[in-house]
Simulated scan of single mutants.
Amino acid sequence: MSFLVGTTLLAVVTALACAVPGVFVVLRRESMLVDAISHAVLPGIVLGYAVTHALDSPLLIVGAAVAGLVVVLGSEWLSRTGLLAGDAPQGLVFPALFSVGVILLSLNFANVHLDTHAVLVGDLNLAAFQPLVVGGVALGPRHLFVMLGVLALNALFVALLYPRLKVATFDPAFARSLGIRTGLLSTGLMLLVAMTVTAAFHAAGAVLVVALMIAPPATALLLTRRLGSMLALSVGIAGVSALAGFWVAYAFDAATSASMAVLQGLLFAAVWLGTRWRRHRARIRGSREAPLPA
């Protein structure tokens, strides 16, 4: 497999892996929690790399995902105390963890060599640089197979728990009355989000991974109100925008991950404007067809 093809596939698979759990994050109105998790996993990544010496190690992904889960559990615990309201708990927990990660990076902890710029926006080309060689044959970027595993895990989680996820997302109280353990289900989903964010961290960084996870589902939500259709549209939008963004970056020698995020943002803006225009036209037609007062 050539480097260009491998990098293209890595871009598409990373976008798909982020879009699947992103659907439920958007529907639960917890989009900014992804930003909190993406920053909080940094110390876990640094410490994990110090042990494994491999940014694409599955053990690193699990360990850093646990660090991301600390944000979710810590924020929920602070909220339950009743002393803080809104998103203040997230604003306290994730900057503290991210600051620890930055300090570890600045001190070059345990000879961990990570570029601060790459941490923030990622480097897709660097993520695809190390190939997986089996029997003397290069099968493609090693990180591609890591992301394929994450995509498969996300798809399996949604497929197995789809009815429970659907009920718990739209009506948590009714789900609890049916005996569904919504708290455990939510924690499992957030752990999956944290693992996905950690795996995509190498390619998209702490900032752009938020766009990859939120933009496609948000765009799909403007087009449909059916969960199945929203999942399909999110995956389609993520794949097309990733492919288009990659080739735009290749043509203009621009940052790959940033180009993908920009394409997703432009697509969302176009759909949003189209939706607003249709609603405006519908209101005009409705006012014209309304009967005159007697």
Rank of each mutant, 00 (worst) to 15 (best):
V72A: 10
G236L: 14
L191D: 07
L120Y: 02
L156I: 14
V137W: 10
A200H: 08
T224S: 00
G149K: 04
G82T: 05
V25S: 06
R279F: 13
G274M: 10
T81L: 15
G286C: 05
R226K: 14
P43I: 03
V66N: 06
L60I: 03
F174T: 08
L42D: 06
A194Q: 13
A204I: 01
Q90M: 09
L9R: 01
N111Y: 07
A19R: 13
G101H: 07
T219G: 02
G82A: 08
G122M: 11
T196H: 10
A290Y: 06
G82Q: 08
A138R: 07
L4S: 09
L97Q: 00
G48A: 00
A270L: 11
R142S: 14
S229I: 04
A110F: 09
V193S: 06
L33N: 01
Q264I: 07
F145I: 11
A138P: 00
I61F: 00
T81D: 08
N125R: 15
T81F: 01
V146R: 02
W247D: 00
S177K: 05
S186R: 15
L84N: 12
T81P: 04
S287K: 00
I103L: 14
S186M: 07
G265T: 07
A128L: 03
H117W: 08
V240M: 05
V26D: 09
G74Q: 10
R181N: 15
L107K: 05
L151Y: 12
F157P: 14
A67R: 01
F246M: 06
T81K: 05
L139W: 14
I37C: 01
R283E: 13
A15C: 15
G188L: 15
V62Q: 11
R279P: 02
G140T: 14
G22Q: 13
T219R: 02
A270V: 10
A138S: 13
A261I: 08
A11V: 15
V26A: 03
G101I: 08
A50S: 15
A152G: 12
L97P: 04
T198F: 09
S234D: 09
A269V: 15
M190Y: 11
A64W: 03
S31R: 02
R285V: 12
L59V: 10
A138N: 04
R281Q: 07
D35N: 13
A290G: 01
G122W: 07
Y250W: 09
